[in-house]
Structures are given as structure tokens and as C-alpha cells.
Amino acid sequence: MPKVLLLHTGGTLGMAGGQPSALRPSAFFRTLKQRAPELFQLADIELELFSNLDSSEMQPELWSRMAAHLYQRMSSFDGVVVTHGTDTLAYTASALSFMLRDLPCPVVLTGSQRPLGEIRTDARLNLIDSVLSALHGPREVTICFDSHLYRGNRTRKVKVSEYDAFESPNFPVLGTLGVEATFEPGLRARGAPRLFERLDPRVFLLKVFPGLDPALPLALLPHIRGLVLEAYGAGNFPIDESLGRSLRPLFTQAREQGIPVVVVSQAYRNGVDLSLYESGAAARQDGAISGGDMTPSAAVVKLMQTIVYHRTPESVARTIQTSLAGELTMRPAPAPFPKFRKDRVKTRTP
């Protein structure tokens, strides 16, 4: 039989209890064999306990440990399934997609909205679909949820109380597991597997909103090494100085202090185009980096990694704007800003 590594990290799927009591960790492996015996008919499954955490406790240090562990183990398996809580699932999937390159087998993350031990749980089907995806899906980091397979770094959690909790707004699904299971080819390996496990968590995610006092993010600059800015629409933010809320000083001071600023959009679909409006163009002139259509979670983790492996502003900008693991839709580079010469300006004389 094909071999699948099932790495448990925690989350609702492996918990017990419910309302009115809080969910609590349980003996996940025992429950798995009782509630989903079909898994062991699909593959020779090796169970490993990495952690037993609520996903709100997942941190970059754990991502690095997890990536290093998977890098050492995955070549011995036909596929890998990682069980995880849903709240930070997209962050972990993004992190693993950047840290594990050119995979020898699929790495599929999954979770559930209800614990495996409950009668109306979605965990059982998510586990079965994930094992199938780990055996037949593309060789990249994905999220399998509610009979769909998504590219991990393109996925967002969009619902709290429904089973179709995840979507991929700017990239098509990589698999559909209905009556038939169909999969897209996905990413192609370009060589032997590679590990990039180092991250610098000193990155801040700032969401622009009306009334934001620029003094607050400016005070953060001495304490961070990177900034991801969730701007309006195509990359807009206030630059009118009349009310004292222009964010342009944030970009200029960040550039002076060598802190890269990546701009992503608050909009659910499409992405940033810093050449479209005045504020975006001003940010670009001040050194801002377009995050294109990356999700905020992918942009945060990618910046955590980029500032470790790349030192110069040019190298950081180039890496952020390059698709490393399918996280970004590549578009032609924007044209440089035109330079106007006063002696070429024509005036009409009476």
C-alpha cells in the first residue's frame, strides 16, 4: 500500500467536548482509528504527534521546526497530511509553501469545524479527502477542506460556523473531490527538495482605516524589520496633510530606516496596482513594494522569510514581487515614472 505520514498539530479536529464546555485536547490517534477506519484502507498511515495546540498558539518557531521535520521525513512517504486548527491554517500553509520547495510528494493540510468524535463532524470526510489528495494531488503545499483542494498560500478562512470555511479568491481550485476526485497538475519541481526554514517574526501587519493616527505606526518602526500594509482597493491610503493623517511619512521613514513595506489590498478579490492612483504612486516613489494579489497571510510570512535571506532593498523587492510558490500572479513590471522637462512644456501665447 502507498505510505502516508499523518502529522497531528492540534486544533478542533482532534479535540473533544463542546458547548457548553470549552473544547479540549483528547487522545487523537485512538479517536481516529475508531471514527475513520477507512483511512487505513486507503494507505499505510504512520501517525506522528507534532503538537496538540489550539491553532491560535501556532508561532513562526513552530513553523520552522515543522518544516525541518517534514523535510527529513517526507521523502520516505508517498504523501503527507498535516492536521491543524482552522484559525491559522492559511498562515501555516503559506509558511510551509515558502520553506519547503520542490516537494517530492504532496503536503496537504486539513482541519475541521467540529471535532472528529462528534456525530455531525466534517472531520471524517476532510481526512479521507486529504489522504486521497496526498496520494493523487499536486506536489505542493495545499489545504483540503469541504471536498475542495486549494493552493495553501492562496487560501483564506472566510467562515466561522459553516463547513465551507475556506476559499481561494484569486486562484482556481487544484482539486474537487465529489463523486469523482479530479486534480490539477499544480507546481512542477525544478530540482531536489530544498529547505528554507529561517524566519524573522519582527514583521507587523497594519490595516489602514479612516482615522488612523500615523503616529502609531511610526512609533512601531524602531521595533520591526518589515511592514505589510493592508491598503484600500488597488493600494490607496490617505496622503492629504490638511488633517494630519497622511501616511506618506510612514513610507519615507521606513525607507530611511531600511524597513521594507509591502502593500496588499483589503479587497477580497484582485490585488494591488500602485501605478493606478496618486497615493499608490507616491508610495511606490517612496520605496513601497507591491504585493500584487497575495493574501495578507502569505505576504506576512513571505516577508518574514525574505528579510532573512535577502539583505539589500533591491533584492528584497525583487523577491517579494517574484512568485516563489505560486502565491502571486506575475504581471509585467510597471513602467518607470516619466521625467518631465520644463523646457519642453508648450504654452499658448496670445
Rank of each mutant, 00 (worst) to 15 (best):
M1F: 15
P2I: 10
G11R: 12
T12M: 01
S21T: 14
S21N: 15
S21H: 14
F28V: 06
L32V: 05
A36N: 08
P37T: 06
L53A: 03
M58C: 09
S64V: 06
R73M: 09
S76C: 11
F77R: 04
F77I: 02
V81T: 10
T83P: 14
L89R: 10
R101V: 12
C105V: 15
L125G: 14
S130M: 05
L132N: 15
A134E: 08
E140I: 09
I143A: 06
C144I: 03
H148L: 05
H148C: 02
K157Q: 00
S161H: 13
E162R: 09
Y163A: 01
S168H: 01
L174F: 00
G178R: 09
E180S: 02
A181N: 09
P193F: 13
L205T: 06
V208P: 03
F209M: 01
L216H: 00
G233E: 06
G233T: 07
I239G: 04
R248Y: 11
R248S: 03
Q253S: 07
G258K: 06
V264E: 04
S265L: 03
S265N: 05
Y268E: 07
S279E: 12
S279W: 14
G292R: 09
D293C: 02
T295D: 06
A298H: 12
A298L: 04
Q305E: 15
T306P: 03
L328I: 07
P334I: 06
F337A: 01
D343A: 03
R348I: 13
